[in-house]
């Protein structure tokens, strides 16, 4: 667990399986994740469509190359969006100390590692999230994040090829974290 909580950078590919009440079958998407402590995240969706979400602090840029559209957002304008994105960043960074302010946290020792269960303590998070389950390998690397939404939908993001604490070069920083 200690190594999970000492994540400074993270690179991984992911498979995200979303169960959406509106759809008859789950949606599966693939892409890459880049994280840099304390508050930088690059979420690059590569299939079924391409989309990039870059978060730096409270600034968010959503780029949809297939639609030729790019949009900058300010998380400060939405309490809920800010809380959700902040939660995700803190999960990737292993910041359980920060998550405890918003969630009731319970850590379980499993055969293949650890599972941390987070339940929102109250508004605004409980309006959109029922709970988050984070699975961590024995070596402390993040393996899976399951988010159960208030709508009944859920998203299971499985991480592969995880590289932890490999510094980003200045060029990578420029390319991956410029909002």
């Amino acid at each position: 667990m200690r190594s999970f909580q000492e994540v400074r950078t993270l690179r991984a590919s992911f498979i995200d399986r979303r169960e959406v009440d509106l759809l008859s079958e789950p949606l599966t998407s693939r892409g890459h994740l880049y994280y840099q402590r304390p508050d930088r995240l690059h979420y690059a969706l590569e299939s079924p469509g391409r989309q990039e979400v870059i978060v730096v602090g409270s600034q968010v840029r959503v780029h949809e190359p297939d639609l030729g559209r790019s949009q900058s957002l300010d998380l400060g304008a939405s309490v809920i969006a800010r809380a959700v994105v902040t939660s995700l960043i803190q999960v990737l960074g292993g910041r359980l100390d920060r998550l405890e302010a918003e969630y009731r946290c319970r850590s379980l020792r499993m055969a293949e590692g650890w599972e941390v269960r987070l339940v929102p303590q109250g508004p605004p998070l409980d309006r959109v999230v029922r709970g988050i389950e984070v699975r961590i390998a024995r070596d402390g690397s993040l393996r899976e994040v399951l988010v159960r939404e208030a709508t009944g939908d859920s998203s299971r993001m499985t991480l592969e090829n995880v590289q932890v604490n490999v510094p980003f070069s200045p060029e990578e920083e420029q390319a991956d974290f410029t909002p």
Partner: peptide, 8 residues
């Protein structure tokens, strides 16, 4: 569908 697959 594409939008539902994305975090945004």
């Amino acid at each position: 569908r594409q939008s539902l697959a994305s975090p945004s």
